[in-house]
Structure formats: structure tokens, C-alpha cells
């Protein structure tokens, strides 16, 4: 079954969608979209370095993403203006990464594959890494689900309940780094945040509890991955962007349904 590249691609997309949904909910709730972008953009620098040093691009991307996420978290605790800081870091790491790649002579690199994903080229080994990473992210988020929710609602409330909000935020940082690393192959660094927030945001108008939003987001993400893949095959369009397009269509449809049903949102 895994011999078929379309099957492998579909499984890769489903794996990323499953991990992205619960994490994406927190990205939406905690207004971390830009933070996610910075982490994802930094991954291109990680990819450039791993190509230069001839190590696994998963490892390189993971390491640099985590480093980026951790740096931003630390700096924001010290009270830097986070919005500007993220803008500076996100785009400078992306630019530096692209420049470093251009220096790598002798290596033929399809830059587009890293920027927008190359899901059709997912190998069995890639699939194992994607599902391993996705399982880890889902395990982390489900393990800390309630503490993460309390921390998101009110940090003092978390302290009073005997939790350490900084530790919970570190869990999110870690999950984000892993998700970025495994999603590069599927949607590329520029569209990772789209996979995080669009399915979750689409699920918002249908959900009355945080749990339902995460589950529905996962379902929307999976359907988007499979349908997007199919659409890309039929219309000969780039796959990563096609998947995101399908997710966006879900978002528009559900937002309209939601606003008709409930005038407040």
C-alpha cells in the first residue's frame, strides 16, 4: 500500500493535519500566529545549515525552529516589543537561510520544495518521521491539555491552581518546533502556519467547547489534505497551496454558517 506515492502523500498530509489541529487551537487562542511564522521561517535556515553540513534536514529544521521559538519566548518574558521582534527575526532568518542556500554550490536544491512543500516526494522514512513527530505532538498536547487551557485563560489562575505557566508555554514551544519540522515536506515553511490556524479557525464557528474545536479542526485538516491532494492531481496545481486552499474554503463556508446561526461571531 505504501508503494503508491499518492497513498504516502495522503498519509503524510493526514499526519500533519492531526498534529496541527490541537496545537493550532492554542496558536489561535493565544494569538501566536506571528510566533508560528517566525518559528517556521527560521526552519529554512535550519534546512540550509543541514544541507551545508550534510545532516538530516528534519534534525536541522527542528533544532533551529526550537532555538528560534525558545529565543522569542525568553525575549518576550523580558518585555521586548514582541510584535516588532518577531517581524525582525522571522524575516531575517528566512533571508539568511535563502542566502546560505545560494552559497551551497554543487548541491542542486529545489528551493520551492522547502518553501511550499513537496508532499508527492514523501518517502517511507519521511512518513515514519512525520507520524512519529505528529504522535509526539498529540501526546504532549493531550497530556498538558487542561493545564494549557488554564494557562491560556489566566496565568494567575494557573499559578493559584499550582501550575507553572512558563513550563506549559515551553510545552507549546516544543510542540511548535516539532510540528514545523515535520510539516516542511508537506506544506513548506511558508504555509505551515496556514495548516495550524486555518482548520482550527474554521472549526471555531461549529464548536462550543475547546475539545470540540480541536477535534473538528483535525477532521477539517484531514479532509483538506486529502481533497487538496486530489485537486492538485486533477488540476495539476502545486499540492501544498492546494491543501491550504481547500482549508480556506472550509473556513469561509463555516464562518458564513456560523455568522448566520449566531450573529455575535
Amino acid at each position: 500500500m505504501l508503494d503508491d506515492f499518492m497513498t504516502r502523500a495522503a498519509l503524510a498530509g493526514i499526519g500533519v493535519a492531526l498534529a496541527a489541529a490541537p496545537l493550532g487551537c492554542f496558536v489561535v487562542w493565544r494569538r501566536m500566529a506571528y510566533f508560528g511564522d517566525a518559528t517556521a521561517h527560521a526552519a529554512i535556515l535550519g534546512i540550509a545549515l543541514s544541507l551545508a553540513l550534510d545532516v538530516s534536514i528534519f534534525a536541522g529544521a527542528l533544532l533551529v525552529s526550537l532555538l528560534m521559538a525558545w529565543t522569542v519566548t525568553r525575549l518576550s518574558l523580558r518585555g521586548y516589543a514582541i510584535d516588532t521582534l518577531l517581524g525582525v527575526l522571522a524575516h531575517s532568518t528566512l533571508a539568511v537561510g535563502l542566502v546560505v542556500v545560494s552559497f551551497l554550490s554543487g548541491v542542486r536544491i529545489d528551493l520551492m520544495a522547502y518553501l511550499f512543500g513537496d508532499i508527492l516526494a514523501v518517502s517511507r522514512a519521511d512518513l515514519a518521521i512525520i507520524w512519529g513527530g505528529a504522535a509526539l505532538v498529540i501526546a504532549l498536547i493531550s497530556w498538558r491539555w487542561v493545564p494549557l487551557l488554564i494557562t491560556t485563560l489566566n496565568e494567575e489562575l494557573a499559578y493559584a491552581s499550582g501550575l507553572n505557566p512558563n513550563r506549559e508555554k515551553l510545552i507549546l514551544t516544543l510542540a511548535l518546533g516539532i510540528t514545523v519540522a515535520v510539516a516542511i515536506k508537506v506544506v513548506g515553511v511558508l504555509l505551515i502556519v496556514a495548516m495550524l490556524i486555518i482548520p482550527s479557525a474554521a472549526a471555531r464557528s461549529l464548536a462550543r467547547t475547546p475539545e470540540v474545536m480541536a477535534v473538528v479542526g483535525g477532521v477539517i485538516g484531514m479532509i483538506s489534505a486529502v481533497v487538496g491532494l486530489r485537486a492538485a492531481y486533477i488540476f495539476d496545481t502545486p499540492t501544498g497551496p492546494s491543501i491550504v486552499c481547500i482549508a480556506s474554503i472550509f473556513f469561509v463556508i463555516f464562518s458564513i454558517i456560523g455568522s448566520v446561526r449566531n450573529k455575535r461571531f
Binding site: 487562542w29 487551557l149 489566566n154 489562575l157 479557525a201 475547546p210
Partner: peptide, 20 residues
């Protein structure tokens, strides 16, 4: 400790019922 915060800083994007 029962803590009653001044407010919760969640945005409307976080759906949560009183019971939950």
C-alpha cells in the same frame, strides 16, 4: 487556594461553556 481573577484574557476565538 480559590482564585477569582479580575478577568480572563481569552479572545472570542476560544469557545468554552460555563460548565467546561
Amino acid at each position: 487556594i480559590g482564585y477569582v481573577p479580575q478577568r480572563l484574557n481569552f479572545n472570542p476565538a476560544l469557545p468554552i461553556t460555563v460548565e467546561r
